[in-house]
Design a protein around this nucleic acid. Structure first.
Lengths: 222, 222
DNA sequence: GTATAAAACAATGTATACATAAATAGTCTG
DNA sequence: CAGACTATTTATGTATACATTGTTTTATAC
């Protein structure tokens, strides 16, 4: 619909990603190229090209005669990723604050926050998670560094499964919403240092909550 | 030699990278897949796979009937990359400092600094650049976050050409060497905050020097 | 029964052939 | 001569065939 002529390679990238996120291809599982090609109803060539792309995005790994392995995430991996998100997103917050955006231009960011509060009020955690991701994505877009945007997207993709798994195991993210408001205000007021600092501790807090949770539950891989 | 059985795809990745860095494939130039395949003495299949890999590393771009384009770097791109390096490397410096490395384990870092001073004394800028990259790579390795390491490598690759081009146009990096010593000392002393802060301003300084230089020379793309 | 070697098998890596679609050149018409 | 339509060329996207090499299995010796 959206794109009438999408190459098989692109379709394969899109569909494999979806299958990884949905759990149709579970973390840690192995899959032969031929198998994937049959599932996607195309030949091995575009599948290989898609797999190569997804490999460089850190979602899977080609292991020469053992098949394509969907990469599981260890608590250490999560810590690595959250540290990167902390640094790059707080930089984005700082930049965004220094760019003098009007509240008109910050509308999307504001509505993401509203959506989060709405979702939280209704205890709809899935909606909350979606709005939360939207907030972070929009923040990074406002930061204006396209490479940061693409790296952050990659990292978000890598933790997506784990985030969803732990969504119902975490305490309700009330503090989180307050943080978002504070970051928003700092950006609107052009207070770059504050935006950076607040977002930074927000992310560090998120890391601690998640890593502690995984330790407590003794979850080794997701 | 080093690897007797390297697949053509891997060889293509390695050789294309080398050709991009050496200028054999100049920034902004276009190349048909068939042409590259002939140059590398293999069929289009492994070339396409290599090109896909290099595309996701930000070195080139596949443009459906116009050929493979070697991506040029604008001053804005340089600013983006240096901002990322600033954030991720200063995080690495902070982590490294908090890990309590012995001076034995910091030997590589120390020798990179020595090599830089040596090179500077002899005005051998190429040797200096090599040692400088080694310092930053080693610093990031000591930080212990493998994803940061791979992102930093990717960013270093993207600016390599531009760094080399401007190497002889910049003032001699004397301050730079002092900074490195200070970062080293902070890491050895376990002073995480200092390591972070010093490395951070070191990188911000490097960004300013480079961006200003490009502006002054009115270099739009490299 | 275990260990070793050989052979069969299976999955990947690579070349090639072909279908498709974009760009270009050529032709016709006003 | 401009413009539009058609034909041709050409590069890519994809399927397929084949070569290569790692793995597994089987047979044989001890």
């Amino acid at each position: 619909m959206s794109n009438p002529t999408l190459s098989n390679t692109h379709r394969a990238v899109r569909d494999l990603r979806a299958m990884i996120f949905s759990g149709a291809l579970p973390a840690g599982s192995d899959h032969l190229e031929t198998e994937l090609a049959r599932k996607l109803n195309m030949s091995r060539t575009p599948v290989r090209e898609a797999v190569l792309t997804l490999e460089s995005q850190g979602l899977l790994e080609m292991r020469p005669r053992k098949g394509v392995r969907i990469l599981p995430l260890s608590p250490d991996d999560m810590a690595e990723i959250y540290d990167i998100l902390t640094e790059l997103e707080s930089h984005a917050a700082e930049s965004a604050a220094s760019m003098g955006y009007t509240d008109q231009e910050l509308l999307d960011l504001a509505s993401a926050i509203d959506a989060m509060e709405e979702a939280l009020a209704q205890s709809d955690l899935e909606a909350w998670a979606k709005a939360d991701e939207h907030f972070h994505t929009e923040l990074v877009r406002l930061g204006g560094n396209r490479r940061i945007k693409s790296i952050v997207t990659m990292m978000q993709d890598q933790v997506r499964r784990a985030r969803m798994t732990t969504l119902y195991l975490r305490p309700l993210p009330r503090q989180s919403n307050e943080d978002h408001r504070l970051v928003f205000t700092a950006i609107l007021n052009g207070n770059a240092k504050a935006a950076r600092q607040i977002h930074r501790s927000h992310r560090q807090q998120a890391k601690t909550v998640l890593v502690d949770l995984l330790a407590k539950l003794k979850l080794r891989y997701l």
